[in-house]
Amino acid sequence: MNTIVCAKQVLDPEIPPARFKIDPEAKQVIPPPGVPPVISVYDERAVEAACRLKDKHNGKITVLSMGSEKAADVIKHAISMGADDGFLLQDPAFEDLDSFGTAHVLAKAIQKIGGYDLVLCGRQAADWGAGQVGSILAEMLGIPVVTLACDVQAEDKTLRIKRLVSDGYEVLQAPMPCLVTVSTEIGMPRLPAGVRLMMVRKKQIPIWNAQDLGAEPAQLDKTKAHMEITGLSVPTRKTECELITGSTPGEAAANLALEIAKLI
């Protein structure tokens, strides 16, 4: 089966919160110096899901990433995990697109590749966390979508997907081709190992621009964007800490229980 995975490069979410800085005027995040960007954690799970399907059913995995030249690292990372090929979607017109614009570019690229059975995305990006691209993309491609998958299995021409719900999961069946967004619950991504890790370094990732894709200028027009950022701020969090004490641990626990009782 042929799978296409969409993966985004994001600022390393593991930096200490104190290091996270924004420019409120430009409504942009300031990349911290010396911290390399990484593949969005959810998208890495999508790659993992694709690799697991490939382990069982063979086939081909193609990775798409839209972003700067550095985003080629995301594709290389996916290839070192087990993907076969990848394309970098890069064009000045692609910068700062909203979810609809992004989905349009991805849809064009997916149609250009063609012959796919499954499109996988992360449930949301680890930076903005909108979680829209997957669903919009499916709509544009005219294929079914299942979100929040924690397990994807393929049987013949159908997919069996465990989808997260608030108190567990539901099992859904979808015909292929189909789009699935993957959640972290699918499990840890594999550690890229073996020779792939070495080989991928020298691999050239082909770049597709707006013209290559035949993207429609109207869809890339930022003045007609569906989303507008009106303000950007780092949430301030205030913590008040009251230390509950007691002469014995038992007394301290009783005092704590009394305090909690006051709150509920």
Partner: peptide
């Protein structure tokens, strides 16, 4: 593999170059 060094998360209070 992804960050180029073994420290990540809350431990890296100061970052390389900083």
């Amino acid at each position: 593999q992804s960050r180029g060094h073994p420290w990540a998360g809350i431990q890296s209070l100061r970052l390389r170059g900083d």
